[in-house]
């Protein structure tokens, strides 16, 4: 499991000092640590597209943040991705829980989005990587490099049990 405190420090070291989003139980510990953190300020949003809007506004003021959500939120953010973040070429890091896989077999509400999550990201032209405990820093490095070099949206998918809960 990835230690939330280490992840926060790592992202902060890479220049991110704000996070916003809508919670997922997969990120329970991460959110506890974010709320305590003096490195990254966490803003709870009412909707995932609002969180992306906040993150884009933060970037337009010259600072960097990331957005946290369940993959269900990928359905909500279609317009803000295509008509704000991607249209204006605003770098944006999405940290998204990958619900609807085998551990969620008894959560039918997640299954259909689980089936199409990667198709949805491909359809939005959002590059993504799946995060694993082994080499997680390299995955984040690659995502941030691509995001900054190409002024693009990038997504990191997080399966159950990868983050400490």
């Amino acid at each position: 499991m990835i230690d939330s405190v280490e992840l926060i420090s790592y992202l902060h070291k890479h220049g991110l000092n704000l996070a916003t989003g809508v919670p997922c139980s997969y990120f329970k510990q991460l959110l506890i640590e974010l709320e305590k953190s003096d490195k990254i300020n966490y803003i709870p949003a009412t909707r995932e597209d609002e969180a992306v809007g906040i993150s884009c506004g933060y970037y337009l003021g010259g600072q960097n943040s990331f957005v946290l959500m369940q993959n269900s939120g990928l359905a909500t953010i279609g317009d803000v991705l295509t008509s704000l973040a991607q249209l204006y070429q605003i770098p944006l890091l999405l940290f998204v829980s990958y619900r609807g896989l085998e551990p969620d077999a008894t959560f039918p509400e997640h299954l259909l989005m689980g089936d199409v999550t990667e198709d949805v990201l491909n359809a939005y032209n959002v590059p993504y990587e799946i995060l694993y405990e082994e080499g997680w820093q390299d995955t984040i490095d690659r995502a941030l490099e691509e995001m900054n070099a190409n002024k693009t949206v990038v997504c990191i998918l997080v399966e159950k049990g990868v983050m400490d809960e």
Binding site: G53, S83, L84
Partner: peptide, 22 residues
């Protein structure tokens, strides 16, 4: 200034992010 071309419903969110940043 920040002229939104799309993202209907989000000027307050964008303005809030900007206000936090500056």
């Amino acid at each position: 200034q920040v002229y939104l071309r799309g993202s209907m419903g989000l000027p307050m969110a964008v303005g809030f992010g900007l206000a936090l940043s500056q």
